[in-house]
Amino acid sequence: MDHTKAFNAALKEIAAGGSSEVSELSPLAREKTAAEPFRAIDHLGVTVPDLPAAARFFEQAFGASTLYEVKTPDEEPQAGREAERQLGLTEGTKIVHMRLMRLGDGPCLELFQIADGEQRPAPQLQDLGLTHFGLYVDDMDAAIAAFENAGGELLEGPHPLAAVEDKGDNAGIYGRAPWGMLIEFLTYPDGIDYPNDAPTIRWTPRP
């Protein structure tokens, strides 16, 4: 625009280093992105075969921190008709260990260890319901190395992101935790081409 050219020309006379540079800005986020009375996702529930081992994996792979024990193995299991009705457990299922962990600037992880209930394998991406969580990473190579060193198994990649996310060095890769759960790593340092009618921008963890 003419006024931008005039502004840059004037800066050459008064600013150290010459004229300014123009940087694209992301659209402004709406203050509210959920209906009252909802705020945001507080935690994700993850059922694991061995809770201490799973917690060590999250600590070693991602630097997650244990906040507190919700239920220790020394306490009476959470079980019976009341628990079955409240939590949707099948008859005879017992919750024997629960722990809350924090993983960066995002929802907490609530880990469950279950006994005496029928369990299915970890879901695949094509299964219904929550299939994985995605972690934003600043260094894909370092994330991959930490994940594998902690016992995770990577799928093929890294690969470009899709559609409006496919720009420059943006990339992602999926892997499996030792008990089979899918976890995704993604990074989009080159931004996202939001459609003009996007109501807000994507939530991204703080650096």
Rank of each mutant, 00 (worst) to 15 (best):
R39F: 04
E91K: 15
F7N: 06
Q113N: 05
G129W: 04
G104C: 07
V96Q: 03
E69H: 09
S23V: 09
L28Q: 10
L161H: 00
D169S: 15
P121C: 05
A64F: 09
E21Q: 15
D116E: 10
G180W: 01
F133V: 07
L161Y: 00
D190G: 05
D166M: 12
A162L: 06
T204K: 14
G45D: 02
D166T: 06
M101A: 09
H132V: 10
E21Y: 11
V48K: 04
A145F: 02
E69G: 02
E59D: 07
P199Q: 04
R81L: 09
R81D: 09
G63L: 13
E13C: 05
D2V: 08
G129Y: 05
D138Y: 07
A83W: 13
M98H: 00
R39D: 04
S20N: 08
G45M: 09
T90Q: 14
Y136L: 11
E82H: 08
P77I: 04
V70Q: 13
A145S: 08
A162Q: 01
M101H: 06
A143P: 05
V48R: 03
G88V: 12
G191P: 10
Y194T: 02
R202P: 04
D141C: 12
E156W: 00
A177C: 13
L44D: 02
P49A: 11
G106E: 06
L154W: 00
D139E: 14
M101N: 08
L109F: 01
G180R: 00
E156H: 01
P205M: 04
P77H: 02
K94D: 08
G117Y: 07
R176E: 00
N170D: 07
E156S: 05
Q124I: 00
G63F: 11
G180M: 04
A171S: 12
F57D: 07
D127T: 00
G17I: 13
S65Q: 07
D105P: 12
A146W: 03
L125W: 04
G152I: 13
D2G: 08
I144F: 14
N149S: 15
L135S: 02
F112M: 12
I41Q: 10
A15E: 00
G129P: 11
D190W: 03
L44F: 14
D50L: 04
A35M: 14
K12N: 10
R120I: 03
V137Y: 08
L25R: 15
Q86V: 10
F62N: 06
A122Y: 03
H159D: 01
L128T: 04
D50W: 02
E153M: 13
V48I: 10
L161R: 03
A142R: 11
L128E: 05
R81G: 06
P73C: 03
G63D: 11
I192N: 15
H159L: 12
T66I: 11
A10F: 09
D50A: 06
I95P: 12
P189M: 04
G175K: 11
P107T: 04
D50N: 13
D138K: 14
F57M: 13
L155F: 10
K12G: 08
G80D: 01
A54F: 05
D169T: 14
V70R: 11
G88P: 13
I192Y: 14
A54H: 02
L51I: 12
L11C: 13
L11K: 05
S23H: 11
G104P: 10
V46H: 08
D139I: 12
N8M: 15
D139K: 12
L128Q: 07
A146S: 15
P158T: 02
